[in-house]
Design a protein around this nucleic acid. Structure first.
Lengths: 204, 204
DNA sequence: GTCTATAGATAGATAGAC
DNA sequence: GTCTATCTATCTATAGAC
């Protein structure tokens, strides 16, 4: 009565697929509302399973949402490393911001945990997340100093300020303001935010 | 046994002072956490009165927070009209953003109701708030078109995009990121955000 | 108008059958 | 592992004494 290895693998695949669906739903919901406003009933309803089942996969609401954030971070890392290394540094920076804005428009980007969230302290205690943030920051930070050495990004700006300014685009309310106005296509919104971010509001 | 008019006025003054203290506490708390995370116990504790007393002044949590937001908006309107009309339009725009950033740093600025808040729909149904937003937008919008006509603000940008970009600075997470890093003075943070907002990240 | 006490609703999390 | 049913805590809001 030994189960075939393929069967075990299949069961594990199902489990992983289910967990991925849960994370995906949590991610979407965190894009719509705050961690505090989101409920486990919301998640269960969206996935289509009972709330109690969620707790077989994740120990708590905090664990579930942390896992969702780690997955987003992982997707960002994958995108970063997929970029052609020979591209000019500033182009890579633009590409990353563009990627963030597109995910934000697709409502697949949980709003970054500013102080306006109970999730923040939990996330910062999560080693997976904290390490991921450091890795991403190292890669982007290198591109920033590179672009500043080339004189493309303003060398007078502190690199950490540039980094945070780029991060902040991933939860810029301008995107939802413009989206709600229904005046522009998604791609136009992305272009506008990219332009004001890199070129500023003043005429050149 | 007719109470002297002065006495009535005094009582009313006390009432108004108390209500102002409540609004101020709510405002501070909304700067620290989301509407959903904030509780009426928080407010009562901060003011130093019983929770039930809050409901003698404001009918609900939504009403209280709406009133707090209206007060912030009113302060913004007062600042707008206090600006010397003869100033160049772009200077007035910079001044308004600076004012927002300073209030944000002082934690006196409730984070704007993006989609990430249950408060949003309540606020938009509040005539005082909605009218205030329109008035403020009209004033700032005029300055934007003026600055664009002068060629100081990029005339190619849609005015509504410029307006939203300026509004978004009032809840820019860059401010709290930099504040938490403890690397910079408040005034340096304000200058950095103002600079990246108007001049962009790219070197000029 | 302030308080204590509590009602009523809903959240996160768990128990136990299947 | 999924479900239904339930526990416990907490939050908004109210009742009623003073």
């Amino acid at each position: 009565m030994q189960p075939a290895p393929a069967k075990v693998s299949f069961k594990e695949q199902m489990l992983q697929a289910r967990e991925h669906a849960i994370l995906r739903s949590a991610c979407d919901l965190l894009g719509e509302k705050s961690f505090d406003a989101m409920t486990m009933d919301d998640v269960a309803g969206k996935v289509g399973i009972a709330k109690a089942s969620l707790y077989k996969h994740f120990g708590s609401k905090e664990e579930l949402c942390s896992a969702a954030m780690v997955e987003v971070l992982s997707a960002a890392q994958t995108y970063l490393t997929s970029l052609e290394p020979s591209l000019p540094a500033v182009d890579k920076l633009r590409a990353v911001v563009r990627w963030s804005l597109q995910r934000l428009l697709a409502q697949e980007m949980p709003l970054l945990p500013s102080r306006n969230s109970t999730l923040r302290s939990v996330l910062m205690a999560n080693k997976c997340y904290a390490d991921g943030v450091i890795q991403v920051s190292d890669i982007i930070g290198e591109w920033i100093t590179e672009a500043q050495a080339e004189g493309v990004i303003d060398p007078d700006l502190p690199p950490i300020g540039v980094l945070y300014t780029l991060y902040a685009r991933a939860c810029d309310p301008v995107v939802s303001f413009l989206k709600d106005s229904a005046l522009y296509q998604d791609e136009e919104i992305v272009d506008l935010v990219l332009r004001t971010c890199f070129d500023g509001l003043r005429a050149r």
